[in-house]
Design a protein around this nucleic acid. Structure first.
Length: 137
DNA sequence: GCCAACGTTGGC
DNA sequence: GCCAACGTTGGC
């Protein structure tokens, strides 16, 4: 699996916050879900991922990349979970909304459509290309 | 180790 | 604000 999609509520962590963080990037902490954890563990440095705004916006707004691979989440007292660091790559010209994704038959199998609650998801190559094209990149 | 109860997420 | 989906917790 070549690409990823990460989700955040704009109230907690928005694209703008990610842009402000700049090259330093930010750690993607707070994940407390085993499926998401496994996906993070599979991430390789420099791999790009889609950045999705849940709840408000409900759209893929840009591309980030992994700048630090999976390591322990120091905010997790139990020590069971970890996190990765992301850095902004570039914003979409046009945000790709959930409606647009649902309306695109090539994206009918996206995890976002079928398991919207998973916060870190794999994205297939063809799905990746379709979403990027829809985003104007 | 099973399963009911509960909490959280996220679309609508 | 509601509710469905799903993950986690805790009693047995």
């Amino acid at each position: 699996m070549a690409h990823w999609l990460v989700k955040s509520e704009p109230k907690k962590w928005s694209w703008d916050d990610q842009v402000k963080a700049g090259k330093a990037g930010t750690y993607w902490d707070g994940v407390r879900n085993h499926s998401a954890k496994l996906n993070m563990m599979a991430m390789e440095e420099r791999r790009p991922g889609l950045f999705y705004h849940s709840n408000e916006g409900k759209a893929v707004v840009g591309i980030v990349k992994v700048i630090k691979e999976y390591y322990p989440d120091h905010t997790d007292a139990s020590g069971r979970f970890g996190m990765v660091d992301f850095q902004v790559v570039r914003p979409f010209k046009t945000p790709v909304t959930l409606d647009m994704i649902k309306g695109e038959s090539a994206l009918a199998d996206m995890v976002l459509v079928n398991n919207s609650r998973l916060s870190v998801q794999p994205v297939k190559d063809d799905e990746w290309e379709t979403v990027c094209r829809m985003g104007g990149l």
